[in-house]
């Protein structure tokens, strides 16, 4: 494992913490949304947006940017929090999440939100779009890298595997996928709903370079991304073991927090746990 400077790790951890704080604030203010799967991918997003990706938030249309696709679109609050923290739009705007007229729709909308590369929400479609972008980058001889985050439950969608074949067939080594393997989906555990069985073996059988990582370990995420850059001729997937609701004790591992907003008291409690100083007594919460 490459060595990374402690201060760099601390910076990224702080970004991840801030992403989590803003996920809670935004969903609390909206009164609806998906906290569990947003919190589970916060560390991966923090590494991507504050370390790995070549981006310029002041120029979201910059041709040579790296691109991130949130295929599990219901984790939009995590994406928005990362984008805001990176400077694509003001952090205060996060409190407009899911409100009429807001740029921050319930699921990512590329036409409305700066930094959103493609609209998602209907599961299973992000990897295909990522393939298209990776193919275009190769056609244009750009060294752009494309990152895509999939949910574990999302892997039940057949299109994911159509796309997984395409990524390999087209030798898209400029593409890296993450599976946010938090083990839970709306109707229960992924194991009970429709077991993925040996998920890493599945990707490997499709021809991908596969890594298994702890999706909350900043160093492991960074190492995986660095390793993926060295892999030539095929795409890489990091199957990231994560905890749904990570960072908020009463949400962790709770299937009920897939698509439920915390109430005022729960927001307060969550923010305290996340080390946020409550200035306004949790006044970000509706009602």
């Amino acid at each position: 494992m490459a060595t990374y400077d402690d201060s760099l790790i601390a910076m990224i951890e702080e970004k991840a913490r801030r992403i989590r704080v803003n996920i809670i604030k935004a969903i609390g203010a909206a009164g609806s949304g998906h906290p569990g799967g947003s919190l589970s991918c916060a560390d991966i997003l923090a590494v991507l947006y504050f370390h790995a990706m070549r981006i310029d938030p002041k120029r979201p249309d910059w041709e040579d940017r790296d691109k991130f696709i949130m295929s599990k679109g219901h984790a939009a609050p995590a994406l928005y929090a990362a984008l805001a923290e990176a400077g694509y739009f003001p952090v205060e705007e996060l409190l407009t999440l899911r409100k009429l007229g807001s740029r921050l729709q319930g699921h990512p909308d590329m036409k409305k939100t700066p930094g959103v590369e493609i609209s998602t929400g209907s599961l299973g479609q992000g990897l295909s779009a990522a393939n298209g972008m990776a193919i275009a980058a190769k056609l244009d001889k750009k060294d752009t890298r494309i990152y895509v985050l999939l949910g574990d439950g999302e892997l039940e969608e057949g299109q994911v595997w159509e796309a997984a074949m395409t990524s390999v067939h087209r030798k898209l080594d400029n593409l890296m996928a993450f599976v946010d393997y938090n083990g839970l989906q709306i109707d229960g555990s992924v194991e009970d709903v429709k077991s993925l069985k040996a998920v890493g073996e599945k990707w490997r059988a499709f021809g991908w370079h596969v890594m298994g990582i702890d999706g909350h370990d900043i160093r492991q995420i960074m190492t995986a991304i660095d390793e993926a850059k060295q892999i030539k001729g095929k795409p890489t997937v990091a199957v990231a073991r994560t905890v749904k609701g990570k960072g908020v004790s009463f949400m962790e591992g709770g299937v009920d927090w897939h698509g439920k907003a915390p109430n005022r008291d729960q927001v307060y409690k969550a923010l305290v746990e996340l080390g946020e100083r409550i200035v306004d007594g949790g006044g970000v919460v509706n009602g």
């Binding site: 479609q125 779009a129 298209g132 972008m133 193919i135 275009a136 796309a163 074949m165 395409t166």
Partner: peptide, 28 residues
């Protein structure tokens, strides 16, 4: 041949890939 993409019997993936290509400035 370099601008043609045979997607196999996978129409869903084809449309998604086309969207990605279009997002990157191509006219698929």
């Amino acid at each position: 041949p370099d601008r043609f993409f045979e997607m196999g019997i996978a129409e869903q993936d084809m449309i998604g890939t086309a969207a990605g290509l279009a997002a990157a400035g191509k006219i698929p």
